[in-house]
Amino acid sequence: MGPRFLLLISVAVMGLVSFLFTGHPELSWPLGQVDDYLLNILILAGINVILAVSLNIVNGHTGQFSLGHAGFMAVGAYGSATLTQINGKVFLADLSFLGNAAPTGLFVLSLLAGGVFAALAGLAVGLPSLRLKGDYLAIVTLGFGEIIRVMIQNTESLGGARGLAGIPPHTSLGWTWGISLLAIYCVGSLVNSTYGRGFLAVRDDEIAAEAMGVNTTRYKVTAFVVGAFFAGLAGALYAHFIGYITPEGFSFLKSVDVVVMVILGGMGSTAGVTVAAIGLTFLNEALREAEQYRMVAFALLLIILMITRPQGLLGGLGRWLPGKGGKP
């Protein structure tokens, strides 16, 4: 199975599901009606997969420690909501030639807009800050995430601290998992190529990478922009799933959640972080009864993992795509 097959599947899933169930988000599972609760968790899991896989290209493959993923997610969420919620009526009128599919068309545009806005934010943050290394970069990206949040909080047109309600619920299981597969495909393809060996070279030894002709700055910024783009998509999906977003939802803790998924799954292992993202989403729900002790369970899980498998669940087990020559 070639990696392009995955691309094909992801596009097919998105296309089929959105075509069949336009205007019926409750029917989004191709097999028909699914338990609402399970459906919601599956969608959340998909969004988390996108976040974890996209952070992995920065933190895992390129070895840069970013703590600002929630910031890019916020840019994507609010960026897309400006199209569908704030200016929704205007844009829908513009798209009226699409007939019944107009809301879906606008949703697709808003997803793209969310991704592109976030990617631009990634470029703006990445260019100056990627000269820094390790802890310093972590602090700068953390600061950036907070700046975004506070800016949104103080922007009345975006709802300020009250948040933005009434975002049309377009996000379906098909969209979410279609884009998840797309993210997995993109990150996997990028890394598993001669071009992509550059990311790994930067992670392993920056000085040697430079000396072998790898432009480390360009690679780091590229990783950052790609990561931000998909975080933006995830944010847009999230906004159109929950229907109501507040700046608080994109706090530092959300970034930490994603970092935990990446560390747990294994830095640089796409399969690992995918499994971890799904697993942690379900674990989070399973422990909902236990309320605040949830965090204790997560912390314990991390500690146990660090002692028994410091490289993460599937770290160091070889990369996912395309399977050949990928053994470590």
């Binding site: 060996r197 072998m212 020559g325």
Partner: peptide, 21 residues
């Protein structure tokens, strides 16, 4: 020695082909 330690012998060399890609 500064090799790319997480990569295979082959990938170390492949990474250096980046320049003429």
């Amino acid at each position: 020695i500064r090799l790319f330690n997480s990569l295979t012998v082959l990938d170390n060399v492949v990474a250096a082909f980046n320049l003429h890609l």
